[in-house]
Amino acid sequence: MSQLAWNAKEATVGELAERSGVAPSALRFYEREGLITSRRTSGNQRRYSRDTLRRVAFIRTSQRLGIPLAMIRDVLALLPARSTPTEADWARISECWNRHLEDRIRTLQRLRDNLADCIGCGCLSLERCALSNPGDELASHGAGPRRLIEE
């Protein structure tokens, strides 16, 4: 594979894959999902603008944080199209994650703190469930692990 030159304005799918560490199939998937865009050459080959590298890094990092692709797409739509986002652009979109990440942190902390105990009925302990949740009273609060998601 050829390496992406530091001054290249565009990259092939192979060059972008090599530089970003993301498989070409994933890049095509991101494009189908509207997360990144490319132009087509006269030979119908994809060409990605160099700023796509930052977008792919943002997508991968967001995914590692557990942020759904639909939310990533919505936030990326706030960035300028086909140009390199500024520091202010990145700061603005990172604010979009704060509430979501705080909620996830609280949920993960509850999971960590209650994992060895009953998380209210999802159910990790059938023996203890009759003591902690007699008659499955938590079912009246909704489906899933109610103690984990309702604190």
Score class of each variant (00 low, 15 high):
residue 69 L to Q: 01
residue 91 A to N: 14
residue 139 A to H: 09
residue 128 R to Q: 13
residue 73 R to K: 14
residue 96 C to F: 06
residue 60 R to F: 00
residue 62 S to C: 09
residue 116 A to H: 13
residue 76 L to Y: 04
residue 72 I to D: 02
residue 64 R to S: 13
residue 100 H to Y: 06
residue 75 V to N: 03
residue 76 L to R: 05
residue 65 L to G: 02
residue 68 P to K: 03
residue 88 A to F: 05
residue 110 R to A: 12
residue 122 G to S: 09
residue 135 G to I: 07
residue 84 T to E: 15
residue 78 L to W: 00
residue 70 A to D: 08
residue 91 A to E: 15
residue 76 L to H: 06
residue 74 D to H: 05
residue 72 I to M: 01
residue 101 L to P: 01
residue 131 L to S: 13
residue 100 H to Q: 05
residue 67 I to L: 07
residue 90 W to P: 09
residue 140 S to E: 13
residue 110 R to L: 13
residue 108 L to M: 14
residue 62 S to I: 02
residue 109 Q to W: 06
residue 65 L to A: 09
residue 122 G to W: 04
residue 73 R to V: 02
residue 83 S to L: 07
residue 88 A to G: 11
residue 85 P to N: 12
residue 91 A to Y: 04
residue 87 E to P: 04
residue 59 I to N: 02
residue 136 D to A: 13
residue 64 R to F: 05
residue 105 I to L: 10
residue 96 C to P: 00
residue 97 W to C: 01
residue 82 R to P: 00
residue 81 A to C: 04
residue 92 R to D: 12
residue 119 I to T: 12
residue 134 P to G: 08
residue 91 A to S: 15
residue 75 V to G: 00
residue 133 N to E: 12
residue 105 I to N: 00
residue 108 L to S: 10
residue 82 R to D: 15
residue 138 L to S: 10
residue 141 H to T: 08
